[in-house]
Amino acid sequence: MVQKMKTDSIERVEARREVGKRVRREAILAAAERVVIARGYAEASMDQVAREAGMAAGTLYLYFPGKEALLQELLGSKVRRLDEAVGAEIEEGRGMGETVRAVVLAMFRHFEEHRGFFECFVREQIEFTRNATHSSGVLREMAQVTARLTEWIEGAQGRGEVGGGEAALLAVALRGLVFQFTRDWLRDGAKGELTRHAGFVAAFFLKGAGA
């Protein structure tokens, strides 16, 4: 009985410790995003992120070995949240046309919400991706988005809602349309709402996919 109480106590302490680590990690990523938006990737530093997060630089290095790893994780987290947004719309179980528009709208909203960060990414993309090890991790995250879209399109093809082209190519085409409109919007100074293009992008994709 005593041993079980000790074990339970240790497990609770470990659980609280893990929660604390996750909270600090998220705080670091949020601080890094603010620094990147304010200073740009090239000028951002670990010391600046530590100050913005309200922690010692040494603590920051316990979570990330350096600036490149930190900024690539920040970019990866944005891609993961994009994947989650896409998944949430797909799981609603609507028809093909309505789902395409909802997916495009969700992706555009994500880019609008983090406009400052993605403006910096587009402006300094070479700096963001120059480390092959870190950029490969981001590419893996992006592949998850494509895989989710591919699986959904395959299901729609099975129900006869869309043409019989290669599902993976259609997924890449849809992702590419969204990213191209987003890049153009950012390079044009992010004027107006990106989401206003959702209907056009969805209709263009559906026509090309034979829906």
Rank of each mutant, 00 (worst) to 15 (best):
I90Y: 02
E161Y: 02
E113P: 01
G20V: 09
A190H: 01
A15E: 08
G189N: 02
F205L: 04
A156S: 12
R175A: 11
G97I: 07
F181H: 12
I90H: 00
Q48I: 09
R16F: 07
E91P: 09
G95E: 08
K207Q: 14
Y41C: 03
V13E: 14
V100A: 03
L70C: 02
A147I: 09
T195L: 12
G176W: 12
E124F: 06
V172T: 13
E33A: 05
N131H: 10
R130L: 15
R51W: 08
E33Y: 01
E33C: 03
V23L: 10
G208V: 04
G20S: 09
L149C: 07
E113N: 09
S135K: 08
R159S: 11
A102R: 11
V103K: 00
E26A: 10
A53S: 09
A50D: 00
V178Q: 01
R34T: 05
V13M: 15
T133K: 09
G95F: 03
Q125V: 11
M1G: 12
A198L: 14
G116N: 03
Q144Y: 14
E124S: 05
L105H: 05
T182L: 01
A27H: 06
R24F: 10
G66K: 12
A42N: 13
V2C: 02
F111K: 00
F117N: 07
G160C: 11
A85R: 07
A88P: 04
T146H: 11
V23C: 02
Q157I: 04
I10D: 06
G40P: 03
G40Q: 03
H114S: 05
D8T: 12
E52H: 06
E151I: 06
A38R: 13
V145L: 05
G199C: 12
V104E: 02
S45H: 03
E43K: 15
H197Q: 08
M55A: 08
I37Q: 01
G155K: 13
T195G: 13
L169T: 12
H110V: 04
E154D: 09
L174V: 04
G93F: 04
A211F: 13
T150F: 01
R81N: 07
R16W: 06
I10F: 07
L139N: 13
R187G: 08
F204S: 15
F64V: 08
F128T: 06
E127I: 05
E141M: 02
R101K: 15
M107V: 05
A88S: 12
S136C: 09
V23K: 06
E119R: 15
E91Y: 10
L82S: 02
F111I: 04
L139E: 12
A27E: 07
A38P: 05
T182Q: 00
S77P: 10
D188I: 02
A88C: 07
L62P: 01
F179I: 15
S136R: 14
A85M: 10
E141R: 04
R183W: 08
R159N: 12
S77Y: 13
G176D: 10
R12H: 11
L177M: 15
L174N: 00
A15G: 01
L186A: 11
E119A: 14
G137N: 04
L139D: 12
A32P: 01
R101Q: 15
A31G: 02
A88Q: 12
V103W: 01
A168N: 09
R148F: 08
G54K: 04
A15C: 03
R17E: 09
E154I: 05
A171Y: 04
V104H: 02
G54E: 06
K4H: 15
G192I: 07
A85L: 11
R148I: 09
A53H: 04
W185T: 01
